[in-house]
Each structure stands twice: as structure tokens, then as C-alpha cells.
């Protein structure tokens, strides 16, 4: 029998795949981006502490998106993209 596919949808135009360029892990600025869930901040700052044993961390910054339940504001994401080459995100939980 012939049915209509209930999962059918159209991909929006202009949605290409994103790829990251090469990064300098020892020197590029890193943002530690928290989802505001409990212990996300502690986890990320703990990673920064350990990172200090292998690279500079004066350009490793912590930010939090503001609300655990809502998306990060676009201006915050734009700022992250503008300032940092590497982002370390805590997600879920």
C-alpha cells in the first residue's frame, strides 16, 4: 500500500555542514562554556586547573549561558565565535 511518510520534511536552504579549521592547542584562546547545570562550572574550572600544567590558561575563560533551561542568547554565541578558537561545552545532566 502507499502511505504518506510521516517523517518527511525539507532541509532548510543554505544549511551547510560546519567544519573547524586547525587550532593551536597550546596558545589559542579557549572558552569554557557552561550550560548552568549543577557542577558544570566546577567541572570546567577543574579542567582549566589541570590544563595549567600543560599550557597557558590566562586566555582560557569561563562563561555561563545564563539559564539552564533556555538557549544561550545569540549575542553571547556571536561573542564566543568572535573571540575564541576553541570552545569546551558542558552539556546535559
Amino acid at each position: 500500500m502507499r502511505i504518506v511518510n510521516p517523517t518527511y520534511g525539507i532541509a532548510p536552504q543554505g544549511e551547510g555542514s560546519a567544519t573547524a579549521g586547525p587550532v593551536d592547542w597550546m596558545n589559542d584562546p579557549i572558552v569554557l562554556f557552561s550550560n548552568n547545570k549543577p557542577n558544570a562550572k566546577e567541572l570546567l574550572l577543574g579542567v582549566r586547573d589541570r590544563l595549567s600544567s600543560i599550557r597557558r590558561v590566562d586566555n582560557v575563560d569561563y562563561i555561563a549561558k545564563g539559564s539552564a533551561s533556555q538557549p544561550a542568547p545569540p549575542e553571547m554565541l556571536n561573542e564566543v565565535v568572535r573571540k575564541y578558537r576553541i570552545a569546551l561545552l558542558a552539556l546535559g545532566d
Binding site: V4, P6, T7, Y8, G9, I10, A11, P12, E15
Partner: peptide, 19 residues
């Protein structure tokens, strides 16, 4: 587009689910 799959539904695919 409907998150998280980010596909734009058609009236037909929406109607299929309503059926």
C-alpha cells in the same frame, strides 16, 4: 523547521501525523 531534526514540515506530512 522543527527542532531537533531541523526539517521544515509539509502540510502533507503534518496531515499524515494527524491521521
Amino acid at each position: 523547521a522543527i527542532t531537533p531534526r531541523l526539517l521544515i514540515p509539509t502540510l502533507r506530512s503534518l496531515a499524515a501525523n494527524a491521521v
